[in-house]
Design a protein around this nucleic acid. Sequence first.
DNA 1: ATGTCTTACGGAAGACGTAATAATA
DNA 2: TATTATTACGTCTTCCGTAAGACAT
Lengths: 270, 270
Amino acid sequence: MLERHEIEAFLTLAEELHFGRSAERLHVSTARVSQTIKRLEVRIGAPLFVRTSRRVELTDAGHELNDAVRPAWRQIAAAVEQAREAATTTAGRLEVAFTGAAGGQLLTGAAELLQRRHPECEVRVREAQLGEVLPWIRDGSVDLALTTFPVAEAGLSSGPVLVSEGRALAVPAGHPLARRESVSLDDLNDLDVLQSPGDASTLNELLTLVGAGRGVLPVGAQARRYYARPDVSYVPFSDAPPLQWGLIWRTDRANARTRAFVCAARDLLR
Amino acid sequence: MLERHEIEAFLTLAEELHFGRSAERLHVSTARVSQTIKRLEVRIGAPLFVRTSRRVELTDAGHELNDAVRPAWRQIAAAVEQAREAATTTAGRLEVAFTGAAGGQLLTGAAELLQRRHPECEVRVREAQLGEVLPWIRDGSVDLALTTFPVAEAGLSSGPVLVSEGRALAVPAGHPLARRESVSLDDLNDLDVLQSPGDASTLNELLTLVGAGRGVLPVGAQARRYYARPDVSYVPFSDAPPLQWGLIWRTDRANARTRAFVCAARDLLR
DNA sequence: ATGTCTTACGGAAGACGTAATAATA
DNA sequence: TATTATTACGTCTTCCGTAAGACAT
């Protein structure tokens, strides 16, 4: 098969029909063009150019090769250029998902920062319910999602931790625990703990169940501010490790836009 | 632009999705495939594969590049293979022209030898009149022509001298020179010498003019055997250099068939 | 005599393999 | 632990430019 420099030397010489000008366009010496063409002709087994020191012309074999190779090589060059462009440009659409009101605030801020930096990037921030985040990421309907860490799934990547918040327990307003300063993980053993996909699919539904006395729900401490309700009280955990939030994406769909958004989100929180 | 080894490594890995098997197919080490892909990704500016030590998969960017590059590269490979094939095969048609009865015998013999050697080569031997040889060669209606040397025209090539014959002068049968043993170039000064494209376009027409006493005509000594006529006598030159015959062809249309025919003609006369 | 292609030769870039290392299941 | 991808490094091919040579106008 032909080497890159052979293809380019051939196509250039076929166009210029002059070793000196070809060498200039190729940024090499004329001697190099001569040797490259010579080697190419040996490899093909026939002369591709008829040349005297005054005239260079394509042979029939050269014409045929030129006609077939030129469009194919242009296509490869265009594909590479497009790939390079797609890899570096932030122009285009970016879909970002969050769960929870606090996450929406954060991502909206990040989106605004991103669009100040890259006006050509079109960002849409959507809310996802608890169980929708991973499916949306997997099927590609969103490019990024804000979620709790860690997410250990093959094919997914995670950005840095953006927010770290204490944990709290949502309990019915009249529940004995509601008057406590804090709760412990051990306290959960005596309680009905609601599960996300099992008992209900959205946070508000779960909190409604909590308010109705159907169980308790571990949440992030921010819930007290964003999901304050008369029927629910939030009691901080004394001993639970903090809840960490960050962005995830499908590794095979990472691009300049996702990188820029992750960067904007990180910068926003400094 | 991408190097040949980068393109082939990429396309192979995109197919195999396994560095070891790709390396095997490419006849290089796995380390080389790894480094080549790495460099390619740096050049493009984005990962083309997502890989762990257990799994290799194309990214979106990789898929797009693969879809665009693969058919184009196949086309180039096919064009090169076809050029190589066309350069070496003798299959196909070959048109050969001659002037004069002796030339016809010679080329017919060469054509028979060629077809014994290369049955897949289809040869057609045609007679050309004097002025037709060069036009037919120039416009490509024949691939080879037997003609007198030297032929110094840009774009034409000549094979070896095949036949070398003494020269003779065709004179009217009753002419004083007809009784001479030989003539000299100096004798031409006192005579009307007929010219090929000027006075007539075929040899028989010229000889008819000679027989009619309209002038004399320098010819090859073989004319005495192949163009014996009652109205024309042939007298050898004592001092003219021999007339040399050989094959010519358009340099840019030389191919395996023309080379094989020239070779057969040369071998025939050994 | 001049412009142009080709050949000869020494130097530098990089393509390659081997072997050691890291990471995954 | 076994398989597979990556990194490190020394070797060697070959790509390249310079300079001299060959050829045609």
